[in-house]
Computed example of a mutant assay.
Amino acid sequence: MRLSDAQWAVLAPLIPPPITRTTRGRPRRSDREVLEGILWVLRTGAQWAALPKGEYPPKTTCHDRFQEWVDRQAFLNILTALAELSEENALLDLREAFIDGTFSAAKKGARMFGPTKKGKGTKIMIMVDASGMPLAVHTCSARPAEVTLVQDTLDASFGMLFPERLIGDKAYDSDGLDAELATLGIEMIAPNRRNRRKTQDGRPLRRYRRRWKAERTIAWLQSFRRVRTRDEVKADNFLGMVQLACIIILLRAISG
Score class of each variant (00 low, 15 high):
Asp178Cys: 10
Glu88Ile: 03
Trp69Lys: 10
Trp220Cys: 08
Ser30Ala: 13
Ser131Arg: 13
Ile19Arg: 14
Leu205Glu: 09
Arg194Lys: 14
Ala142Trp: 10
Phe75Asn: 12
Arg2Asp: 11
Asp175Thr: 02
Pro57Asn: 09
Leu85Gly: 04
Asp5Lys: 03
Gly119Leu: 03
Met160Leu: 09
Leu184His: 06
Ser104Thr: 14
Asp93Cys: 07
Pro144Met: 12
Ala219Glu: 07
Glu84Lys: 11
Asp152Gln: 15
Gln222Cys: 12
Ala49Asp: 10
Arg21Gln: 15
Thr183Leu: 10
Ser223Asp: 02
Lys59Arg: 13
Arg252Val: 05
Arg252Ile: 00
Met112Pro: 03
Ile15Asp: 05
Phe98Tyr: 15
Val10Pro: 01
Leu177Ala: 12
Leu239Met: 15
Glu164Cys: 04
Ile247Trp: 11
Tyr208Val: 09
Arg32His: 08
Leu85Trp: 01
Thr199Val: 10
Pro115Glu: 14
Val34Arg: 06
Thr199Met: 08
Pro57Glu: 10
Thr183Gly: 03
Ile248Gly: 05
Ser255Lys: 04
Asp129Arg: 01
Val70Trp: 01
Pro191Trp: 02
Glu36Phe: 14
Leu239Ile: 05
Leu161Asn: 05
Leu221Ala: 11
Leu42Asp: 01
Glu55Asp: 08
Pro163Glu: 05
Phe75Gln: 15
Thr217Lys: 01
Gly54Trp: 03
Asn192Gly: 08
Ser131Asn: 09
Val10Trp: 02
Thr60Val: 10
Glu88Pro: 00
Trp212Lys: 07
Asp5Ala: 03
Pro191Asn: 10
Asp152Ile: 01
Ala6Arg: 14
Val41Asn: 08
Ala81Ser: 13
Ala6Asp: 10
Arg43Leu: 08
Arg111Glu: 15
Ala182Glu: 13
Leu11Gly: 00
Asp178Pro: 02
Leu166Met: 07
Arg225Glu: 14
Ala110Phe: 09
Ala235Leu: 13
Val137Asn: 11
Leu149Val: 12
Ser131Asp: 06
Asn192Phe: 02
Arg252Trp: 07
Ala136Ser: 15
Gly37Phe: 01
Val70Lys: 00
Gln67Trp: 01
Lys198Val: 12
Ala50His: 11
Ile218Cys: 00
Ile126His: 07
Cys62Pro: 09
Thr60Tyr: 09
Cys62Asn: 09
Pro13Ala: 06
Leu239Asp: 15
Arg196Glu: 04
Ala50Met: 12
Thr116Val: 05
Pro57Phe: 05
Leu154Lys: 00
Ala97His: 03
Ala182Trp: 04
Ala179Arg: 08
Ala9Arg: 12
Asp178Phe: 03
Arg72Ser: 06
